[in-house]
Design a protein around this nucleic acid. Sequence first.
DNA 1: GTCTATATTTGGATAGAC
DNA 2: GTCTATCCAAATATAGAC
Lengths: 186, 186
Amino acid sequence: MRRGESRGTILKAARAEFAERGYAGARVARIAERAGLNKQLIYYYFHSKAGLHAAATAATDQHPDGPGAAAASESAPGAVRAAIGRLLSSLENRPEFVALLVDRFPSPDARVQARAWITQAAADVGAAISRGQGMGYFRDEVDPDGMAQQAIVLCAGYLALRDHLSMETGGWERGVSETLLRAATW
Amino acid sequence: MRRGESRGTILKAARAEFAERGYAGARVARIAERAGLNKQLIYYYFHSKAGLHAAATAATDQHPDGPGAAAASESAPGAVRAAIGRLLSSLENRPEFVALLVDRFPSPDARVQARAWITQAAADVGAAISRGQGMGYFRDEVDPDGMAQQAIVLCAGYLALRDHLSMETGGWERGVSETLLRAATW
DNA sequence: GTCTATATTTGGATAGAC
DNA sequence: GTCTATCCAAATATAGAC
């Protein structure tokens, strides 16, 4: 299937551009250039810059962020570690979505999308912590949702501030897991 | 002193605009409107949009972020709590600076400014942790700088993602302090 | 579907009166 | 110092050939 190949190329270029510059800073002409294709083609496929952005930030299904992703058989700390790993890799593959998360003026659609992702991600991490509490591994006073939100902020915030920080993603992930696990454990 | 009153009004409006929309999304005309003043006045005072942004994001001296701000007499956890409080309040008063921190395409100047702030803030928090280690209060394996960076990401990231989160600033600050202290303590 | 123009609008910046 | 009136470059979007 050759049909839609250009469409995909444009989307890929658009994701990179929106990730780097944000919606307002992104340039349609530059996206066309990055894609090695004509600018008009973007309007042909996506009608407008806003339409392109909506298509570019729409979830691509390849990210198992939901609570269902956790294996019930894992150890309590293993489950938390895995949930944090999912969080980071999910966002790392979608830098344009990180840009959307920290955008103060997203479209209503984008706002809904951001909220939905956060709700889902918080449920994922929160479930791992709750389960650990049930197993007597984590302290009961720990608020699973509050800690899940910290995990989200640690991951999304890291990717947003990455340029200014000195740590690699792997090291960051280990550090975050360790901090949250130690904080939750007796 | 009436002189410079308009200048201040413009700066205030500019901070709000840059905080909401980021540099690329901000509009000079809108800043003038917010300030209730003429657009040309902005160019009279600040020469250009970039100049206005530089002036608007420049530190306003009222934020004691440096390591020197810590009182040597405090208890180890108290010092960490205080450092986190400084972090948050420093950023909370400067939303336009938070926007700059998460901006992927800042000007070279802004980049330097962001790095400098982070270095300073990390030193502040890191010093409190190091001191606590010296007093035998925190575990020696804890990396003060790594934990300081987590504190920064937790504070800056919270303010950047705030719209999508359910926690108030006070509750967030307490949660962050508790998590980091528990993680650092024996 | 893909290209080369070209139109239209927006937004940063200047000129010049008061 | 503050305003009104423009200018001009950049950026979104459209027309229409191939």
